[in-house]
């Protein structure tokens, strides 16, 4: 999976550069997030702008990141969910777990 990682003032921005986030590539997202946690970076924003499709494995990877960030007194927030992706969060009630923002700027600003 190609993820673009950028360090911003308030948090690390992870942009997923894949149309599908599924059982084939979600392990890589998990690994990338674990690398950031090991470097002590615990405030993360995951930008899902380009993701059109997410399955339970993709959701599981994001939950894993959320739990790891929270356990380190940080936070993982989401932004730019496409409508069908948003409906997956609603179906699995995960929209009550994650803070979800309409765009990158608002997600980053929420950390300051």
């Amino acid at each position: 999976m190609i993820v673009q990682i950028e360090e911003k003032d308030t948090a690390v921005l992870i942009t997923v550069k894949e149309e599908r986030l599924d059982a084939h590539n979600s392990g890589e997202l998990k690994t990338q997030m674990l690398n950031l946690f090991e470097e002590g970076k615990n405030s993360l924003v995951v930008n899902l702008e380009e993701v059109r499709f997410v399955d339970s494995s993709g959701l599981g990877a994001l939950v894993s990141g959320f739990k790891n960030a929270s356990a380190r007194s940080g936070s993982l927030k989401l932004c730019n969910l496409q409508p069908q992706v948003k409906s997956m969060f609603e179906l699995t009630r995960l929209h009550r777990v994650f803070e979800i923002f309409p765009n990158v700027d608002e997600a980053l600003a929420s950390f300051s």
């Binding site: 399955d55 339970s56 494995s57 959701l59 599981g60 990877a61 939950v63 894993s64 959320f66 739990k67 997956m88 179906l91 699995t92 009630r93 995960l94 009550r96 777990v97």
Partner: peptide, 14 residues
């Protein structure tokens, strides 16, 4: 609702 932070197990429910 009862396992919102489990990483696995949503596939069958979906």
């Amino acid at each position: 609702e009862f396992r919102s932070l489990d990483e696995h197990g949503r596939g069958v429910y979906i």
